[in-house]
Computed example of a mutant assay.
Amino acid sequence: MDRQAKAVVCREWGKPVQVEQITVDGPKRGEITIKVAACGVCHSDLSATTGKIQYPPPLVLGHEAAGVVVEVGEGVEGFSEGDHVVSSFISMCGKCRQCVRGHPVLCENARKAMFTLPDGTVRTRDSQGEPLNVFGACGVMAEYATLHVDNCVKVAEDVPLQNAALVGCAVMTGVGAVFNTAGLEPGSRAAVFGIGGVGLNAVQGCATAGAEMIVAVDNNPKKLAMAREFGATHTIDLNEVDDAAKAIRKLTGGVDYAFECVGAGAVVEQAYKSLGRGGTAVVVGVADPKDKTSITTLTLPADERTLKGSWLGSARPQHDFPRLLGLYRAGKLKLDELITQTYSIDEAVQAFDDMISGKNARGVIVFD
């Protein structure tokens, strides 16, 4: 059945988001409709409004959400009405070379569902009946959303949905970069550049994995204070140093792992330069397509350094989302503390403004 819903929409790059009344069509074969309970406000959503992530408007935003299944399409197995689910903005066909090699986050067919569902169509229409694209095959910054089952992960019902939502992006991206991409060993020394929602989770990922030293780097003292709460042993305020990499090497002797969570070529260079011999720099942030990074090539073989990327924390969502929520339930992962403020959907513009100003660890839109 079709449902009326409020949704946060990007109508034009470079303009503020707006809240609109839309129609969400019921599920087709292999799809489910969820009543969204909560959706995180992520910098990637902001990047879609600026054109840094070039999803064509008009676009229903939102990719980090949790909700309850209210309708199941034909042929769907493993999901029933009433199930709690977390959205995943990566489609995983399960059949391509990357999926069968155990790298579903690199699914060769995922690009078919960047701003539509996998079949190339959408289930969202505006008040004039015109189709609306959806962020990352999700478009979950709305009261209802219809998604393909490949973009949904069923989770335990005893986890608050506003907490579970964060696993869909910020937590998976940050913690996953540590656990999956880097494989950080206990006793390692690490640095995290950029303490936003993702960087904060990289910090707590390092702490959970047993890092000996964790250096948080940012230009916002409030964010650095948050980093200490999440496990940072040292902080570097960029307002107080000329060369962060040099300061990190002086403090640690060179880190084993550096995580770039900003999305800027110059910061990637700093992360790489902060490494000790045998160190690995992991690029987590999403940079502008024209941005470039320069490194001294000789250091790759001579110091056996590694520079690698991490997309959604090298996730296997069906495995990793429940695993992360299990760590939360065991008291080993902070989710409650990540949510600095909640908003109604009518306060979406304020939620984006607060994110831009650096006010929140994570702002979350909570639906009735």
Rank of each mutant, 00 (worst) to 15 (best):
G331T: 10
V268M: 05
K15L: 09
C107W: 08
N239K: 14
K292V: 14
G94T: 04
G26Y: 01
G40S: 08
A48L: 10
V41Q: 10
S344W: 02
G279A: 09
A227C: 14
P221M: 12
C206A: 15
M92F: 00
W13I: 12
N180Q: 03
S294I: 13
V155E: 06
K6Y: 01
A37E: 04
T280P: 04
A351V: 06
P301E: 14
V203K: 13
T235L: 11
L161C: 05
E143R: 05
Q350C: 03
T146P: 03
C93D: 11
P317M: 15
H103K: 12
P322W: 13
S127C: 13
G67P: 05
K112N: 07
G309W: 10
S188L: 09
A191V: 08
A164I: 09
G199E: 12
Q21W: 02
K290V: 10
R29P: 01
S80M: 06
K95I: 02
E337G: 02
A209T: 11
A190T: 15
S344T: 13
I214V: 15
S87R: 03
L298K: 14
V36H: 08
G231R: 13
D320K: 14
G75C: 06
I195R: 05
E71L: 08
A209W: 09
V198L: 10
D242S: 14
K332V: 02
G40Y: 04
D353K: 06
Q341L: 01
E12L: 06
G26M: 05
L59A: 05
S87K: 02
T49F: 11
D353W: 00
V267M: 05
V153H: 03
T121N: 09
S274L: 08
T297D: 09
K222W: 00
Y257M: 03
G205I: 15
G30A: 03
I32N: 00
